[in-house]
Amino acid sequence: MEINQVVGTLYCTERIEGLRHCSLQILKDRKGNLLVATDPVGVRPGNWVFTVSGSAGRLAMDDPKTMTDLAIGGIIDFWQPKQVAKPDSSSGDEQPTEQRDQAA
């Protein structure tokens, strides 16, 4: 399950019956890509949430027949996003990025 941030609500009147009346939220993931998830919890923009993907996302909804592949699992009480590790960073990136830059 990934950790994403809620950007805002997606208004989508023309939708298939399978999506029923679920509220759709726009989420931003670690790399900045935008995703759309169904929301059984009731989130506000800016919340940090964890999402359930795949067929488990359908089970996260009240009605398991909802046709979604990504559902919001819950709002994280407190989350401190660490800066996005640069792609060429070593596997263990516990040490702060500045210190590693001088070493490189």
Binding site: M1, F50, L59, G73, G74, I75, I76, D77
Partner: peptide, 24 residues
């Protein structure tokens, strides 16, 4: 995560690190 769906029940959730990705 206090405000979460009931399906999770009382199970603990852990933040795990897979390479550079943080997952739950």
């Amino acid at each position: 995560s206090t405000n979460r769906i009931a399906g999770f029940g009382h199970k603990h959730l852990q933040v795990v690190q897979d390479g550079s990705a943080q997952l739950v």
